[in-house]
Design a protein around this nucleic acid. Structure first.
Lengths: 199, 199
DNA sequence: CATTTTACCTAACACTGTTAGCAAATGTAA
DNA sequence: TTACATTTGCTAACAGTGTTAGGTAAAATG
């Protein structure tokens, strides 16, 4: 009865080939160049085979978006685990977020629809919630320790995220017109201000 | 010799018809639905006529982007003119920016490529520089008056803009999942924190 | 061995942006 | 008025896109 298992393996292999090829295209030439037909060409199968593995093109994009959200959550978790000081945690989280967006640029663009038509990422709620919880925790701690206990952690989380996302979006837009050093200085400054304001 | 002038007027009229039709499509059905062919259908001309007035589709998008940048600069200018207190100016500018992004949603998406493939907006430098100058001025003033004169206005401007753009981007992403009140509270909080940190 | 399932392909549909080439109308000059 | 040149607008095509209907041949199943 190894036959059907071999078949499953082969099917899985084809699926991986599709995703692998797609990913190579994206990193080489950007999301714009990704097309079902070109994937089919590259894996040396006909076009409808792709649709045996993915409902449509968006389903392929979604796969990468999910990967991105999971990876981001992991990175944030790792960064946070490095210290117990909540202020330091927030700083490390911000760095990790920044690093993720720089290292996995195409993922980030897809996840948040930067300069491209994003895909429906509503289904990534679990991963997003993880991120949210990881950030809200140190914020809550800092608020409790600070002298402004009426501050709303959820609201502050939103602010924190907005700062990061705004910086990264603008950085992505401008290409390399502004040096990374300056960009990082802006982030440092913004996060320092944010943390200071929590007290 | 009014003939050639009439012709020019008619040509201009057709150009307006193209832009007007395009804009109606965008507001009715989003950027995604905008196509040269549908514009041609709507104005009851054949497709190549569009190309007599615009080099390509991007040139049409660019027209709206430029309009957006100009309008934004105007709104910011008006908001700033309402007071002479730099802190208050920054608050009013932030409100105006927010209001612009809400009122001219499709413009904003196009200008910064949110959830769509944006167009080359590098040519809008004058309008962008206007915005930049309008914001940097009160920031510089505040820094000079404050007790942290070594702060870099340019860097702070970048931070200010990032906060606003981040908030708006995230708001746009989430659709109506978060109420406008909360969104505005986040902005108020973030801007207040930013201004406080300038001193 | 017959039947069903699976794998896979060709060819099409309905779109997209863009352009070559032609025909008719109009303007200009002899 | 006639001859030429320009403008205006069109049809039809090219080269892509995502997606799917329908058919064939191989493989697995009863």
């Amino acid at each position: 009865m190894g036959i059907s298992e071999r078949r499953l393996r082969e099917k899985e292999k084809l699926r991986s080939a599709i995703l692998g090829t797609a990913w190579r295209m994206v990193t080489d030439e950007g999301w714009q160049s990704l097309s079902i037909r070109r994937i089919a060409d590259a894996i040396e199968y006909s076009v409808p085979v792709i649709y045996d593995h993915f409902e449509n093109k968006e389903a392929i994009l979604f796969e990468f978006a999910k990967e991105g959200f999971q990876l981001l959550a992991k990175k944030i978790e790792e960064a946070k685990a490095k210290t117990k000081d909540p202020a330091e945690q927030l700083r490390l989280i911000a760095y990790a977020y920044w690093d993720f967006a720089a290292r996995y640029k195409e993922h980030y663009k897809l996840m948040y629809g930067l300069g491209m038509q994003g895909c429906e990422v509503e289904k990534c709620l679990p991963e997003k919630t993880t991120f949210r919880k990881l950030v809200i925790e140190p914020i809550t701690e800092l608020i409790e320790k600070g002298n402004n206990p009426k501050a709303n952690p959820c609201l502050k989380y939103y602010t924190f995220w907005s700062i990061l996302h705004g910086l990264i979006s603008i950085k992505n837009m401008r290409g390399n017109a502004v040096s990374d050093e300056i960009n990082k200085m802006v982030m440092d400054d913004a996060i320092a201000g944010f943390v200071k304001n929590l007290n």
